[in-house]
């Protein structure tokens, strides 16, 4: 699958959700769904799902979506255990799996091809954990996963080397995105 195709499908299904995204996923998502409720200030690689957990606990009546990467998740694998233990029903955790540290030069992740992310999420205690390798199956299954009580984990097998928009680190780390997010929450 292509990541941008998956994200376009998601954007149609959740035009106004709070979405926490990180690095390559963030740059692609921001181009597809520019929105003040995009939370991009994760600060350090790997922490997107942790920020999302905080948001999910603070706002239990809003759905919080994380667009993580496989390299990012590996940098904070314990977050799977923490999220499962906190068990927020309103959190859905997507991981784009392309087998590489895409934002750091495209080098392979350890154990690429062997690692079972869905198995890890399931054994950590996520309520749902699914993997998709083809778009028709993803399109058919995603709506029920989005509406199911979480925490939910969704692995998307995507092609390496997808073309992302040029990285805009100034935006994701900048004060403006944080301010716009805070203002949008108040509305």
């Amino acid at each position: 699958m292509k990541r941008d195709t998956c994200f376009r499908l998601l954007a149609d299904l959740m035009p106004h959700d709070i979405v926490v995204s990180t690095y390559s996923s963030a740059f692609e998502w921001l181009a597809i769904r520019p929105h003040p409720l995009n939370y991009v200030a994760v600060g350090a690689m790997g922490l997107a799902s942790s920020h999302a957990l905080g948001l999910a606990l603070a706002m239990p009546h809003r759905r919080i979506v994380v667009l993580d990467g496989d390299g990012s998740l590996l940098m904070n694998l314990g977050a799977l255990v923490t999220i499962a233990a906190a068990a927020p029903k309103n959190l859905i955790h997507f991981v784009s799996r392309n087998g590489s540290y895409e934002a750091n030069g495209g080098h392979p992740i350890p154990a690429q091809g062997v690692l079972d992310f869905v198995g890890l999420a399931r054994s950590a205690g996520y309520r749902h954990a699914e993997s998709f390798t083809a778009l028709p199956a993803f399109a058919a299954g995603i709506e029920s996963l989005l509406s199911a009580p979480g925490p939910t984990f969704v692995e998307l097998h995507i092609e390496a080397g997808d073309t992302s928009p040029a990285p805009d680190y100034e935006h994701i780390h900048g004060e403006r995105a944080r301010r716009e997010f805070a203002q949008a929450l108040k509305k």
Binding site: A44, S50, G54, L55, A58, N76, A79, F181
Partner: peptide, 24 residues
């Protein structure tokens, strides 16, 4: 109390709670 696996996680969770209007 939120028990976490590693301290760096706590920084992210704390930021998310703060963004959602909670003191932590």
């Amino acid at each position: 109390l939120i028990r976490v696996c590693r301290e760096e996680e706590a920084i992210g969770i704390c930021a998310g709670l703060l963004a959602g209007g909670k003191r932590a």
